[in-house]
Design a protein around this nucleic acid. Structure first.
Length: 300
DNA sequence: CGAATTTGACCTGCGC
DNA sequence: GCGCAGGTCAAATTCG
């Protein structure tokens, strides 16, 4: 499972957290005006909806914050997660992926939810046939002073843990919407505290409760195509249609082809309203920790 | 007073 | 089997 991969990653990278590596490696890329955006901009703004744009360009527009998509490649067998799968409705592709093939049956949001409930009630009954189902994940690196960026959704913090090899704790958030079990993790880069890594997990089953301001990136057309992906990763999308699932675009562009061989992940730095290479969108293979820096460098 | 956060305990999975 | 680390729960506390 992923967890394992994560651990491996860390170990493989020695004692230095991958985040540390990433941040240092991309330090140059993160050239935004320090802190200005902190707290004042919403996550969507930070992203400028560009995630959903067909094209991304690294570094062009000066923005208040720099956001990068991380593609935990996890490289391991089981992980051809979400994005490298053919575009399929969340119920099938995403879920199945998140399940890592554990459950071949398409898992619907409701099912997952139900599952979760069970789990919650009695912390135990989850072992039998259900391995922890993994949701599709998508991570972003954002240079920000604030840990919890506004993304249009309401999140409730349900935990915080110290991260090994990092002085910064990792915070766990869950979408407050009853029927939505999207989660996200927020942590800071070890070496560069100004960088916040946000990992979304799961798919929103509802529209954003907090409509973000219209994208100043002229994302009207982007919205439609990106809607699914946005919703999937907790990014609010206005006008998003009910099946809040991963969008084909994301999937296609995040295919393994974009990944360094051996399944390592890579990361691209993106900026506000900046068109970036399609490769900027990443395939989510797991936790941020799954990201293997060595290859990222090559990507650049 | 209800919602959100904090925080210690507990659970799970993995490596040794 | 044991220990470690990540992830989650839930009671207590704080906040609006």
């Amino acid at each position: 499972m992923e967890r394992k991969e994560v651990v491996k990653m860390e170990e493989g990278m020695g004692s230095s957290p991958f985040l540390d590596y990433i941040s240092s490696s991309y330090q140059g890329a993160f050239d935004l005006t320090e802190g200005e955006k902190s707290g004042s901009l919403g996550f969507m703004e930070l992203l400028g909806f560009q995630e959903f744009s067909p094209v991304f360009d690294v570094g062009q527009v000066a923005s208040t914050a720099t956001t990068s998509a991380l593609s935990p490649a996890g490289g391991k067998i089981e992980s051809p997660e979400v994005l490298n799968q053919p575009a399929t409705p969340n119920s099938s592709s995403i879920s199945s992926e998140s399940c890592e093939g554990v459950n071949d049956e398409p898992v619907k949001v409701e099912d997952q939810e139900e599952d979760q409930h069970k789990t919650k009630k009695q912390l135990k009954p989850k072992k039998t046939n259900q391995k922890r189902q993994r949701e599709p994940r998508f991570a972003f690196m954002t240079k920000s002073e604030v840990d919890h960026l506004e993304d249009g959704y309401r999140w409730r913090k349900y935990g915080q843990k110290a991260v090994k090899n990092s002085p910064f704790p990792r915070s766990y958030y869950r979408c407050t919407t009853a029927s939505c079990n999207v989660k996200k993790r927020v942590e800071r880069s070890f070496s560069d505290p100004s960088i916040v890594v946000t990992t979304y997990e799961g798919q929103h089953t509802h529209p954003s409760p907090i409509m973000p301001r219209p994208s100043f990136c002229g994302g009207a057309q982007l919205m439609t195509s990106a809607a699914g992906a946005a919703a999937t990763f907790g990014m609010p999308m206005q006008g998003t249609t009910p099946p809040y699932h991963l969008h084909p675009f994301l999937i296609n562009n995040l295919s393994p082809l974009n990944l360094p061989q051996n399944g390592s992940s890579f990361l691209h730095e993106r900026r506000f309203c900046t068109p970036a290479p399609a490769s900027a969108l990443l395939k989510d293979h797991g936790l941020l920790q799954d990201i293997i820096p060595s290859n990222m460098m090559k990507e650049e």
